[in-house]
Amino acid sequence: MRGMLLVTKRELGSYFNSIWGYIVAAVILMIDGLFFNAFSMTEEARYSFEVLRDFFYFSFGTTTIAAILLTMRLVAEEKQTNTIVLLDASPLADWQIIGGKYLSAFTFLAILILATFYMPLLVMVNGKVSMGHIFAGYLGLMLVGSSTTAIGTFASTLSRSQLVSAVIGGVITVFLLISWLLAKVAEPPLDDVLSYMSLFDKHFRTTFMEGRINTKDVVFYLSVSFAFLTMATRFFAARRWK
């Protein structure tokens, strides 16, 4: 565990010491703010519930984009600059390296998600906010962030190019986002599988986004995170044999 935390510490340092982390944070917070202003702070009278629901709707999108942008460098950059040798030559197990990198990206993303907290609080000015809705929404965003960070970490182990990693991570994420559409045209039992895999439609839209917490959705997101981290560790470990 100590080894994993050491990797996390260094990776987090690299986010805060490089301009990339700040650029991603600034862009994501700006987009979040613009969306909030455009969709939630309108002249038209709306229920606080609807405003919060919309907020979590676009925050879902910005969270997935941020996760892909933050994770694309995790392993790919180390391969590109050859600093991967430091980790290869260390006694750290592969799961510690992958776990540490994932944890650093997720921690940064979590800080980014929590930095949007002022927006639901603004709703309080003119409305009545349900703290349960806010809690459920943020829990959902954290779980989505965890899953997409794991997907991005996995994608980053596949290439030495950050761009290619981002594309792979993006493709996987988009597939999981639109799988509910594919489910509509697929035959049974594939339609059920595709529908279940939907990151947004099945597990976020009708639950976390509307202030409800369903254990099945929590398990789904944690399972996606675990599955992609396991695959990332396997692919990462394979480099010693290739």
Binding site: R10, S14, T81, A89, P91
Partner: peptide
Amino acid sequence: RKKIGYLPEDPPLYKEM
């Protein structure tokens, strides 16, 4: 690997540290 130190031709360094 705890007992081994390794340096490749191009030193692997985190340049921001």
